[in-house]
Design a protein around this nucleic acid. Structure first.
Length: 153
DNA sequence: GCCAACGTTGGC
DNA sequence: GCCAACGTTGGC
């Protein structure tokens, strides 16, 4: 059973255009335990991902990606030269995980946070709930389909 | 750049 | 185990 997710990224760090160029990327640098659990345990090849641009103009869902590799250790945590280095994560018992995603589609127009907030069918999305800072979160199929539909308006 | 909302750290 | 201080996220 395919699942649906929303991944946040700051486009100044990694954007949907970067993914379109690279085709496939590893989703590294997640350093939150709840998000880690999703990456390690629940996100599987074939799952679809809303690629969300945070701290952007405008902020919103920029396109779609597909998971092509399930959770495996985030090796950037082992690299002292990486921005994401975490000395507490050991190779024999990794703390942090990542998945690989593949470019699927860039929306012609991003589905902005403003539009998401003003759509009553999306009012239960975790994204728009108060104080949510998760960078990897589940979305329902209905929410996913609604966002895709809005991208075509 | 500001700041609210969280998560994490570390002294006790 | 509590909780104040600190760091980060992310919208605005």
């Amino acid at each position: 059973m395919r699942k649906y997710w929303l991944f946040k990224s700051e486009p100044s760090v990694y954007s949907i255009d970067d993914l379109r160029k690279e085709k496939v990327a590893y989703w590294d640098g997640v350093r939150n335990y709840q998000a880690r659990n999703f990456l390690r345990d629940e996100i599987k090849p074939g799952d679809l991902v809303l690629f969300y641009h945070s701290n952007a103009k405008p902020t919103g869902v920029a396109g779609i990606a597909k998971v092509v590799k399930a959770g495996y250790p985030d090796f950037t945590a082992f690299d002292p030269n990486s921005d994401h280095f975490d000395p507490k994560s050991k190779e024999e018992s990794p703390t942090w995980f990542m998945v690989d995603v593949k470019f699927v589609e860039k929306f012609n127009m991003p589905v902005t946070l403003e539009k998401i907030k003003s759509n009553p069918r999306l009012s239960s999305m975790k994204l728009v709930q108060r104080g949510n800072r998760l960078s990897v979160m589940p979305v329902t199929k209905e929410e996913f389909d609604e966002i895709v539909r809005m991208s075509k308006e």
